[in-house]
Simulated assay, not measured.
Amino acid sequence: MRIDSHQHFWQPARGDYDWMPMDNAILARPYVLSDLALHLEACGIGATVLVQAAATVCETEYMLGIADATPSVAGVVGWVDFENPSDLETLKRLSKHPKFKGVRPMIQDIPDVDWMHREDVQWGFRALCDFDLTFDALGFPRHLDNFLKLLKRYPDMRAVVDHCMKPQIRSHGEQSFRVWADGMARIADQTRACCKLSGLVTEAAPEWTEADLAPYASHVISAFGAERVMWGSDWPVCRLASDYETWFATAEGFAAGLSAADQGEIFGGTAKRFYRLEV
């Protein structure tokens, strides 16, 4: 089964999508299953992982409600407040939901690049290990060293790097590529983390081409191996730079030279295994 390991639904009227520019016609509108269904059908996607886009527990409850009513949503990656130790009980409660798979602190939006190493938030990472939940690592290349340190501190934590750690493709400087590539290779070599082949189109220039993205996709697949790479649409954010079908076809092109088994891993097997999806 083909699986989209990273998509969103949201309702901006709830008022907790702090990152979202409310004057952006593409982003600042509700997105629900009926908006996505035709894209899933066109690409032969049988299941998805629904990922948080607001830093509230309300967002997590909202997504779990959607998952309860939507067979194609096989898993939910939510949010709890790592700065509030009482949310340990919230995480424990959420962990009992069969479609709740883990959490994603919105680290890319936190000004303190060292936030993940603050002692007062370590309970959260320990709890993910204790409850055997997943951690989606959302950040930028400036976070690479800190994520490596974090993942080595918690070697039993099931972690996945979101959006290839958002390389700055639009600048495409050799130095920035090398810093990113080296940091990703260290995470691949020194940890068990997986990586989502997602988010590249929105980090590229508006008139991106397949050739612009290819070095980044190739490096991720080579460094992590197909068994640790999972494709994700990042829909509807991807609509800022691409439609769903175009990004899916582009990613298929990056994997075209791989074996059928490896392609199966990238477009379904890795996500199913990592998130322990019942599909």
Rank of each mutant, 00 (worst) to 15 (best):
V80L: 10
A205R: 15
K96N: 15
A188R: 00
M116S: 12
C129M: 09
K166E: 01
P167D: 01
F82A: 14
T202G: 06
G75W: 09
F147Y: 13
C194G: 01
L94G: 05
P105H: 14
F140M: 12
A185S: 09
R118S: 11
M165C: 05
D130H: 05
W123I: 00
P155C: 13
K149A: 11
D182C: 02
R192H: 13
G199L: 05
R178Q: 10
M116N: 06
D87K: 08
V161G: 02
R126L: 09
Q175F: 08
R186K: 10
A137K: 00
E210H: 12
A205S: 15
E207I: 11
S171E: 14
N146E: 10
W115M: 11
P85D: 03
F131M: 12
F147D: 02
M184S: 04
P111F: 10
K152M: 08
F125C: 04
A159K: 09
L200S: 10
G102C: 06
R192Q: 13
F140T: 10
L197S: 14
F82G: 14
V201G: 10
E83T: 15
D112K: 08
S95E: 11
G75T: 13
I187Y: 02
V76G: 07
D109Y: 14
F125A: 11
T191P: 02
K99R: 14
K92A: 15
R118Q: 14
V113L: 13
N146C: 06
E83W: 07
Q108K: 03
A181W: 00
K196V: 00
F147K: 01
K166S: 04
K101W: 03
N84R: 13
V121Y: 15
K152R: 14
A188V: 01
D130Y: 04
A181T: 00
G139C: 02
I187V: 11
F100P: 02
E83Q: 15
F135H: 08
W79L: 11
I110W: 07
R186P: 00
K166R: 07
L88V: 06
Q175Y: 10
N84T: 13
E210S: 14
F177H: 03
L144K: 02
T191G: 01
R178L: 12
D162I: 02
A127K: 08
A188Y: 00
M106E: 11
T202M: 12
H172T: 06
L128R: 04
P155A: 11
Q190R: 13
F140H: 06
G139S: 02
L200D: 06
C164P: 00
K149P: 00
G183Y: 03
A127L: 07
V76A: 08
E89Y: 13
Q168A: 11
E89I: 13
I110H: 08
H172N: 14
K196N: 01
F147M: 06
V179D: 04
V77Q: 07
P111G: 14
K92E: 15
D189A: 14
K166P: 00
